[in-house]
Nucleic acid binder design. Structure first.
Lengths: 201, 201
DNA sequence: GTCTATACGCAGATAGAC
DNA sequence: GTCTATCTGCGTATAGAC
């Protein structure tokens, strides 16, 4: 049943909550978006909080799926960086509200997600990627930079320009289309920047 | 009157709103924090929205003051990058909620700040810095990268690790102290990364 | 200027008919 | 499963005494 009431509510909730956050969203608005009665939300999901947690878990999982797949792939790091940047920026151009949503809710309730993070083994994946990375350093192929700093650089350069879109557009007076072009430009620029710094020829 | 009722309310509002945002903050909570009666907030600031706008304007101004000062300084770009990164990271370590607050509220209401942005001439400063930057490129001292991309790189590498602290701490299992050390490490790392990419020797 | 009391509306949740 | 009606509590804002 892809268009069952429950499914329609889930999709509506995702749409509204992602943009407005927990505090800013109204159950009535979600019901309207789903085209169902307000009471149905409580019938299927018990409470606003429960509905929210379900949405959060799903979205959080999606964001890290891409990252995980690429980081654990067995190609040269130069290709890995390119693939990561491309995949991530494409994903974020499709769902630009995602990072702000996640950072917001993790800031307000850092412990909410521990369970979910364990269930998708984020910790393990992190360690595995780290091991691979450190092996390359020992082989003299990568610059000797702590893995966590590398990851911060990589994620910063991809995610922040998406996050800061409204601020950027105000300051630099670029249009929506120009902004989109800038982000597409970044795919090559960010890869180039990171590769030139990280890879030892 | 540094501890007048009005001043106490302003400080309390700043403290609460910065952490909880507009939707998540309660007038009662701000009144309690200020140690005054709830009705006083409306007496001095008319409404919650007006109180919020005042706080937002002030904080937004503060964040860009540092940036502006450094970018318009007349030193070599190598020193400028170092100074920018140091100043910004020090500022953000003192007020880590600031970027999330600003990005959140600009995302929800992008037009709210246009007036303030004009009053502090952000557009002019941006153009002046851009002109200086492009002069250096023509003189063959800087890599030929669009100014806006350079600025995105710079701000991404400084701000994102502060924004993503809760996510980072969950994934990599670092402690609060280790996190603080990582950010301090970044002052040198980010400068080095940007300088090695941007500056033509 | 400062307080108490209250108006008013809204949002989340549930009871109960169908 | 789905709806209407309603309970309940909370949050902003204001009226009005002092």
């Amino acid at each position: 049943m892809l268009d069952s009431a429950e499914q329609k509510i889930k999709e509506a909730a995702r749409k509204i909550l992602l943009v407005k956050g927990f505090d800013g969203s109204r159950m009535q608005e979600i019901a309207d978006e789903a085209g169902v009665n307000k009471a149905m939300l409580n019938y299927y999901f018990r409470s606003k909080k429960a509905l929210f947690q379900m949405v959060f878990m799903e979205e959080f999982g999606k964001l890290f799926e891409n990252m995980i797949t690429v980081l654990l792939d067995d190609c040269p790091w130069e290709d890995k960086i390119k693939a990561f940047v491309n995949t991530e920026l494409n994903h974020l151009l499709q769902a630009p509200q995602l990072p702000l949503f996640i950072i917001n809710e993790m800031s307000k309730n850092p412990h909410l997600m521990e369970e979910k993070l364990k269930s998708i083994s984020v910790g393990n994946v992190f360690e595995m990627a780290k091991t691979k990375y450190e092996k390359e350093i020992q082989d003299g192929k990568l610059r000797n930079l702590p893995f966590i700093q590398f990851l911060m650089n990589l994620q910063s350069l991809c995610i922040f320009p998406i996050l800061a879109k409204p601020v950027l557009m105000q300051i630099s007076k670029v249009s929506d289309m120009e902004y989109h072009n800038l982000i597409n430009q970044r795919k090559a620029l960010v890869s180039e920047l990171l590769i030139s710094y990280m890879i030892i020829k």
